[in-house]
Amino acid sequence: MDFITISLISFFAVVSAFLPPLLDGVERKVRAKIQSRIGPPTVMQTWYDLRKLAVKELKMPLGGELAVLTVFLSLITSVSSIAYLTYVLITSTLNPLSIATLIVLITASHNLTLLSSVSTSNPFSIVGSYRNVTLLLVNEFGFMAGFIATLYALVRLSTNPTPLSFLAYALGLAALIVSTYVGCGRLPYDIHEAEPELASGALIEFSGVALGTYLYTHLMMRYVFSLLVAYAISTLIIGFTNALVVIAVLALLTSIIYILYGVVAAMLGRTRVDLGVRTLFTLYVSLTLCLVVAWLFA
């Protein structure tokens, strides 16, 4: 690996660390526009919020030392998943090992945030967290299937572009988009924070730095998910060319997808946990079946 590649990777990683809260600020502005409100004063608001939280006192939840630890662990995994993803994208080292590592990193940081609210002693948080676990069990399946299928179809498309492999790509991309959307924890799938009086999640457990870190990690995960979709789309359009162009296009596309997800969320209501799981399960199983059929014929 030469010096330029390394500096490019670190540059993109730094941008990726800075972008998510900014995108969240933009999303808040856009959502306010849709709801005929004014919204936050500037798009930097999320950053200001995080800065404020960082200097606030930390109040440990009862029996929640483990919970706070998992928050910081999930921050580490999500940062490393961004860094590793950047490395994979720029050097285009797509092989089973790197894909597996990516999936492990992403799901690990996802599940660590979940663990954080399960490990508190608040019964309401535990109700909320278990709802999220139920949902994610289905969603991880869809995510893996979609992610692997899309990447595999991309490789096939670059060597042997047939209509059938294009169909496989489309199906895989659909699964990937739905699962990343759900993974972002946006409406209608923000069930763990739904009905705050019946069930609540990490948001009421943490304070100060821990809450800031939790929110930041959450935004990073949203960014990673958008980045994956952006990668799957951009690769098809521009192929693997100049690393700088790839980065620029990726950053732009990721931002667009991030905001688009936010806009979609503003137009929907919240689903119920059993309805949500049932819908997702039906969707993923049928998509996977179609994929298998397409594969058999390809």
Binding site: I34, Q35, S36, D190, A266, G269, R270
Partner: peptide, 13 residues
Amino acid sequence: ALHLLGYDTGFMH
């Protein structure tokens, strides 16, 4: 009611 159903946009309008 819309807010309870998670449809905050409707609530605002």
